[in-house]
Structure formats: structure tokens, C-alpha cells
Amino acid sequence: MNYFLQSLKSVFVKDVLIELRSRQVLPTMIVQGMLIVWVLRIASEAVSSAVTVVGPVALWIAFIFSGLLAQERSFAAEHDEGCINGLIVAPIDEGTIYLAKLLVNVVMLSVYELVLTPIVMLAFKLTLSGNIGLFILVLMLGNIGISSVGTLFSAVVQLTRTRGSLLSILVLAILAPMMVPATFALLILFNVIPPELAGTGALAFVGTLKTAISYMAVFDIVFVTACWLLFGFVVKE
């Protein structure tokens, strides 16, 4: 267990240090996120009465696309410098490498969420009505879901000719089902759908905030486990 934690820490610290020294990814992510939000805010002016509905959608779109930038770099840097071979021959389990990379991507996306969420709330006139703890939980579950799939496929696309452009279609296809409950949960937390109405009457078909959060948790558990188990096959030489 100690060895596992030590190896996890080594890879994690290495990647965080690289980012702190180069400051390559996070500024790009934040600027891209702000641009996405800005464009969607302008576009949503066409239906100014429904601008709050677009807010949560904008938030998830920005998270996915900016998350892709961080995830793509996490293995691109290793391949460009040939470091991936060193990582593979090091006495570290491949699964541990995956978990460390996942952790780095989750941390990067969390910092990004910290910056972007207030901007989205201001731009789309959103006010948090529910529990802030639940709000953070929803963002973190979404973050882990996006990062788990993105980290695995980042390693996959390094072996292809098209790299980044392929990563987006791989990740979007797999993440599609999580986006519906994730958006639904934010719509309730921002009071766009009043929580007392969710799961009743005309909204009976949609479930409740609790079921949406449970769905996201199940999605995360399934995909983190599957990606962790399968990662070894991707990097094996």
C-alpha cells in the first residue's frame, strides 16, 4: 500500500511540477473556457427569457472542451519527449500511472472550475439556491467522469495520427449519457427547475436531484474502474 501511494505521489508531483514551471495548460484552459462562455452568452441573447437554462449547459460544455486540453497534454508531453518508455519500464504498476494522471487532471479541472464557475454564474444570472455542498459534489462528480474517460483516451490518441481531434470524438461519444443528469442536477441547484417540482407532475419523468447525483456517481465508479483496469493494455509495448 505504501509503495502504491509513493509511486502515485511521484507521478502526481512530477506532472504538477511540470505544469507549475511551464504554465502551459491552465491559462489556455481558462481563456478557452471564457471564450466558450462568452460565445454562448451572446448566442443565448436571442432567447433572453431562457438565458438561465443555457447557463448549466454552457458550464458543462466549457468543462468538457477545456478538460480535453489538459487531458491531451497529460500524455502528449510524455510521448513527445519519449518519457512514456521510462514510465513503463519503471517499477510502477500501469494502473497507478493512470490513477496519478487522473488525479492531476482532476486537480487541474478543479482549479479551472473554481475560476470559471463564478464567471458563468455572473454571465448567465444564475443564483445558487440549493446546498453549496451538493453543488460542489455535482461539479466534482462531473469532473471525475470527464477526467476518467479523457485520461484513458489521451493515452490512446497518442498512438494515432490525428491525436487531439480524435480525442474529442472519443470522449464526447462516451460522455454523452452523463451530460443529461449532470445538466439536470445543475438546473435544480440553480433553481431553474424548482426542486419541489422535480420528479412530480409534468416533470415526473425526469427523476430527482438525488437520482441524478446517484447516476453520476455510478457513471464515475464504472468508468474509473474500467479505465484503470484497461489502461495497462493501452501502454503495453
Binding site: A173, P177, V180, V222
Partner: peptide
């Protein structure tokens, strides 16, 4: 693995 996930998430659509 994604196919059953999309079927469950369909609960959030009419």
C-alpha cells in the same frame, strides 16, 4: 459499458 449508461440516463428525458 456506455450503452446501459445511456439507457439509464434516458430517465431524464420524456
Amino acid at each position: 459499458l456506455d450503452v446501459p449508461m445511456v439507457y439509464i440516463s434516458a430517465r431524464y428525458m420524456q
